[in-house]
């Protein structure tokens, strides 16, 4: 299945060169978890702090088991804050 992956801030370095708007589409096995998707880009789980699927939070404890679906959008950030 196809999912969209967006890696922001210091995670941008794990994206292929020339990626536009930090966004790539990728093929993964059906039902893949966020950690499986991130592993395709070599993102170490401990570097991923904030993770959203379709804008909704996925807690660290759920990232191995959460079932992603076709056309889902995964967005991830390292530890960040601001305001």
């Amino acid at each position: 299945m196809k999912v969209t992956v967006k890696l922001f801030a210091l995670l941008e370095k794990y994206l292929p060169r020339d990626t536009i708007d930090q966004t790539v589409e990728v093929d993964v096995t059906d039902g893949a978890s966020p950690h499986v998707v991130l592993a395709k880009f070599g993102v170490p789980p401990q570097e991923c702090h904030l993770l959203l699927v379709n804008g909704c939070f996925v807690l660290p404890s759920e990232r191995d088991n959460f079932v992603m679906r076709e056309n889902d959008a995964l967005a991830a950030w390292p530890p960040i804050a601001g305001g």
Binding site: K6, F8, A9, Q22, L52, F57, A75, W77, I80, G82
Partner: peptide
């Protein structure tokens, strides 16, 4: 860095 976070959620 918050710009894209807020937009995504």
């Amino acid at each position: 860095v918050i710009m894209n976070v807020m937009n995504e959620l």
